[in-house]
Design a binder for these strands. Structure first.
Lengths: 329, 329
DNA sequence: TTGTAAGCGTTATCAA
DNA sequence: TTGATAACGCTTACAA
């Protein structure tokens, strides 16, 4: 790797001049500019970002912290973030937190040590000290906290919608899968669903699950039908779990949606490939990722932002795990 | 962020001494060590990795370049890489290349500018100049090149296995989905399948597809059955495409596996959730990611490595999109 | 056992 | 319009 010094040497100027043409500031004569540019090309020089970062105390690096890239919902988010960042010349340092406080703190720590200029985080505790103490902008993605910058979907409303659609389609004994109690969006969905169920006075059962992992999901699906064999409507905490439930229903010879309806959450890409395809609550994950990245960039660059908390609305995607209903139904 | 200077001040020693306790080298008196450690704790000091990186001309950063994290095969790989790196105190700068030469080069470029100490890349052209010119170790993941460090699965053998299993289970008019012609693993799989089909003298058709994207996969599925309505066995280039094919078969009222058998590739987590669940060729993605990371670390740290090219064998996962066959079949 | 100072590759200030 | 040079925060000779 050539350095600015070598460029200066071969161009026959000082490093200051090279720096000036690099950053297009200060005066530099047309002829010298050309000489410098030639040298740069000749040596195939590109500036050392580390040195820049050290001097300016800021880099072109962003920290991205997601719970688990292996959960099919997150790649969409991640990709949205990456595309937007890439287009704006920011790079991502990426980590999985597994919803663990410790890992989260470790990552935030190293983000800072690497001079990142901003952080995008899906944390369950946006009000934790680590974030409060940060003197760089943070955008919470898929999570939120009072008036801190965040991009998220209306999980509670999603839960409500799921419950309403299920009831409207005739389920009388609904089971709600609660999802991990420490994962904020899971709580919201759950509460939304229960809110409506109580309001409508529909009997329901709750099955507590503790993660979004696929292998465990299969166990819960079994447990679900074992404990509540007569349930005729299941609101899952996400599409992964819903898929596992769907499969278990198949195994038990239950017809979906005739015997039991299922509604998932997230609308991950593969949910429409299931047979029957999965009715679910859609969140615009890719867009949300992009929006979070955009918001963060605005914050970093000190632009004025009108709204720093962006809630996306969710919508019901009617597919085949729910029954048809009259349009005026 | 406190600096080493401030630590030195509050501990009443020089920065050199602080550095010594930080890096546990050189002599330092027990008492001074304690004083320094107290100061560190008190100021909540952590070293600035950027400054370290500048001085040592190497960081604790690794570049990870994947085609598209949104393709369900890659999160497994990524997670394997991340876990292994994390445990060894390396962090990841992550990018999607979309199999595009330009994006790939841009990322490699910025990796270097950020002093990464190693790169893991899923590229279609490991012999490109960018890689040859790198003076840091590179491990190719899911791709390979003659005696350059790489971790990959035996795609060709996978193709062979798929073809054999399909023929063995009675398909007589097989269609092979070729997959993107510039994506190495897709080519291997395709060639392997065709090799066996020719050897066994089984008639087959080829449908050329140009990406692994899900939306396009749906179009190809339609095209497939339109062009070759009588096909009774489909070897897909990956599980995404296989899923789309499966769904289209459903739509057309074809019974799977009775009328048409389908074999996918990769064994992504959701393939077992499909109904019928998808028979496929399994690759140990997570492990491969970990192995690639481990290999890279060995290379970075200058340890001797016995084998720098690690080929994983693949295996047929018999599920429900293929027919049963006698065990001595 | 400890401190001084040079150097890593930049940018920005100041003087020329 | 240009060039010296200090500074960014750290590590490591080298001297004390």
């Amino acid at each position: 790797m050539a350095t600015i010094k070598e460029v200066a040497m071969t161009a026959g100027v000082s490093v200051a001049t090279v720096s000036r043409v690099l950053n297009q500031n200060g005066y530099v004569h047309e002829d010298t500019r050309r000489k410098v540019e030639d040298a740069i090309r000749q040596l195939n020089y590109t500036p050392n970002e580390v040195a820049r970062s050290l001097y300016k105390r800021k880099s072109k690096l962003i920290g991205l912290l997601l719970p688990d890239i292996t959960n099919p919902y997150f790649p969409q988010l991640a990709r949205g973030v990456e595309d937007q960042m890439q287009e704006n010349d920011y790079r991502l340092i990426f980590g999985n937190s597994d919803e663990s406080r410790q890992k989260e703190m470790d990552y935030i720590q190293t983000f800072i040590q690497n001079n990142v200029v901003g952080v995008i985080s899906s944390t369950n505790d946006p009000d934790a000290d680590i974030y409060a103490g940060l003197n760089i902008p943070v955008v919470f993605l898929d999570r939120t906290s009072n008036d801190r910058p965040s991009v998220y979907a209306d999980g509670r409303e999603g839960g409500r919608i799921a419950a309403r659609e299920m009831v409207r389609r005739g389920s009388k004994q609904i089971t709600v899968l609660q999802g991990p109690a420490h994962v904020r969006p899971a709580i919201d969905r759950f509460e939304g669903a229960v809110e409506i169920l109580q309001e409508l006075n529909i009997p329901y059962e709750v099955l507590l699950t503790t993660s979004f992992s696929l292998t465990e999901a299969e166990d819960w699906a079994k447990e679900l039908f074992y404990k509540y064999p007569d349930t005729d409507g299941i609101i899952a905490s996400n599409d992964m779990v819903a898929s596992a439930v769907l499969q278990e229903a198949h195994r038990l010879g239950k017809r979906v949606p005739e015997d039991v309806q299922i509604i998932g959450f997230d609308d991950i890409p593969l949910s429409k490939l299931l047979a029957p395809s999965l009715s679910t609550i859609h969140q615009p994950a890719y867009e949300m990722g992009r929006e979070a990245a955009d918001l963060l960039i605005q914050l970093i660059e000190g632009h004025h932002v009108e709204r720093n908390s962006i809630q996306y609305s969710v919508k019901f995607i009617e597919r085949q795990t729910t029954r048809k209903v009259d349009h005026d139904g």
